[in-house]
Amino acid sequence: MITAERKPLEELIEYVRPYDRILLVGCNECVTVCAAGGRKEVGLLASALKMAFAKEGKTIDIKELTLERQCDPEYIEELVPHIEDVDAVMSMACGCGVQEIAKRFKNIPVFPAVNTKFMGASEQQGIWAERCQGCGDCLLGLTGGICPIARCSKHLMNGPCGGSTNGKCEISPDVDCVWQLIWDRLKALGMEDRYEEIIPAKDWRTAGGGGPRKIIREDLAE
């Protein structure tokens, strides 16, 4: 899923300071699962903002709403009845949601409430770790199912760098060196020979190097 983390409160306070009526919109998909922008987080942020302004003697009216998703226009439409009586919108969805709202409602400012982080998986309740950078040309097939691009600090594609000491990355002892994991995995699968095969230099265009990407399915698109 796409993971995200709420922005520091001061930054959000500054965004909404000039406005009196705010629409705070949550999203019930990825950000709910990673506890960043679900209906509960909307409630907490609304209450926090109200308290922060109440401290300065300013009362602020916050309307709370949570859409099923914010990356499909039909769901964004549900905001229409609420837009007239607010001065600004703050979306707790990932980057996609904020931009869709901005695209749909031209004349009303939209602010992000969370920092979208990475595509990841939950290691345990409450801890999510990066797994994929969406490079567009997946080489997991060559490395036994473990991605060196997303999980190696230097995105090396042919074996560990000099800093890999007893299986840990040089940047920190709690970060595994991905190539150690790959080697253990290949050994377990009995495919040690795969390890020597050189992975050629990567064509980064598929990773967005050649400009913003689109997927088009002619059978579905009009």
């Binding site: 509960k40 409630g43 907490l44 209450s47 926090a48 109200k50 308290m51 109440a54």
Partner: peptide, 11 residues
């Protein structure tokens, strides 16, 4: 005791 209950109490 939900986080919301505590915050709402303060609010």
């Amino acid at each position: 005791v939900d986080a919301m209950h505590i915050l709402k109490a303060f609010e």
